[in-house]
Amino acid sequence: MSVVSTRYEAPRAPWLDRFVLLAAPGLMYLALVFALPLALLLLKSFQNQDGAFSLAAYAEFFGDPYNLTVLWRTLRVALLTTLLALIIAYPTAFALARAQGLAQSLLLAAMILPLSVGVVVKAFAWSILFRSNGVLNDTLKWLGLIEKPIRMLFTETALIIGAANVFLPFMVLPIYAVIRQLDRSLPEAAASLGASPMFRFFRVTLPLTLPGVIAGSAFTFSLAISMYVIPSLIVGERQQTLSMLIARSYLFLRDDQLGSSISAILLAIAVAVVLGSSWLAGRVAGGRR
């Protein structure tokens, strides 16, 4: 409803747009305390003690097979966590979009309420659940599925379940936002033209909801790749992740060179996720035009 179309548009150089001034405080802030410190950290990872260019820290990192195990474990856990969250979140987002009234309020509350409880508490609650004398083992025993307690705490499976639990709302909400805007007449139109349910899902519904899936997956993956509190409480020191290596090198070993090179590697993965997902999102949006 644009009754007033007399927008004031004076001719001016694009960079002198007054809106640049509005953006200035936020941009300058992020440039100064976010971009610049990260750039300095990157720079430091390529220097030796005397400040000369050196790849020694990287050689040290990649020379140790243990570090490669940790790198691979971090990527694997993040990928499986994202996958598990996606499998649960996708149908849930659909049900959430179809639900009405009280049912929808309750489902939405179940998504938001866990955000109020800190990661520390949630991860600790999972470690209680996974204990060998914990609720989960007792329940399985009572059901007759197992005879003696199985070890769950300190396993990668436990870590993936706990992490997916913590990150699930960040997967559901973006997918839900897209589904809600989905024109429901499109799959119906496909149905009226004789498309089978499978064809409709894979050729109509899924492509239309991909932007939400990409946004949710990218966010979940980047959270999972850098999680620190969850693995320290669920798997502990036995199975370290990149974040735990970073914390160890800075806080315990006081080895800044090693710390900054691992940080740079983790940062590179995170930047690749951001760029990759925005490239994918652009492709998905472009393909529809």
């Binding site: 305390v33 976010f34 610049l36 410190p37 990260l38 300095l40 950290l41 430091k44 990218a218 966010f219 980047s222 959270l223 790749i225 850098s226 620190y228 974040s243 970073i246 914390a247 800075y250 800044d256 710390g259 900054s260 940080s263 983790l266 940062l267 995170a270 930047v271 996720v273 951001v274």
Partner: peptide
Amino acid sequence: LMMPGLVVGVALLQF
């Protein structure tokens, strides 16, 4: 939002 928190934290501290 998508950058590793520990890395952001340590970079800020050193800066």
